[in-house]
């Protein structure tokens, strides 16, 4: 699991690969040709294939062959796993802190209100 997440982080560390994921997010099921055309200004078809290979190994991209065409899909599951492992717990703590802060402020303002009465 953690070894797998290392691969996911490494795959996500590259801006071009994140760009490919964004492309797949906006339109799933694209072929290498579709993606190579979209990134034609920045890299060769071979470059696109290499990045797709890294994304596929990390489980971020899943492919499906239909006839002669290979279609690429963004698999959201590893990103959710990163979220659960690395983001969810910190976000929760932050949310808790905010809730505590809110309670403190309310308590203080109640005390204040008490004094005024």
């Amino acid at each position: 699991m953690s070894a797998h997440l290392d691969e996911v982080f490494q795959a996500l560390a590259d801006p071009t690969r994140r760009g490919i994921l964004d492309r797949l997010f906006s339109k799933e099921g694209q072929t290498v040709n579709d993606l190579a055309a979209a990134f034609a200004d920045d890299m060769t078809r071979y470059g696109v294939m290499k990045h797709l290979g890294v994304l596929e190994n990390a489980g971020l991209v899943v492919t499906r062959r239909v006839g002669r065409e290979k279609h690429h899909y963004l698999n959201p599951v590893p990103i959710k796993q990163i979220h659960d492992r690395w983001i969810g717990k910190y976000a929760e703590r932050r949310a808790e802190t905010l809730v505590t802060l809110k309670r403190r402020i309310e308590e203080m303002s109640n005390v204040g209100a008490g004094r005024r009465d």
Binding site: G29, G59, V62, R64, V66, H71, Y73, N75, V77
Partner: peptide
């Protein structure tokens, strides 16, 4: 039609 619109994958 043959092409999926979305795929999710997980190792268990």
């Amino acid at each position: 039609i043959e092409k999926p619109v979305h795929i999710e994958q997980i190792f268990i």
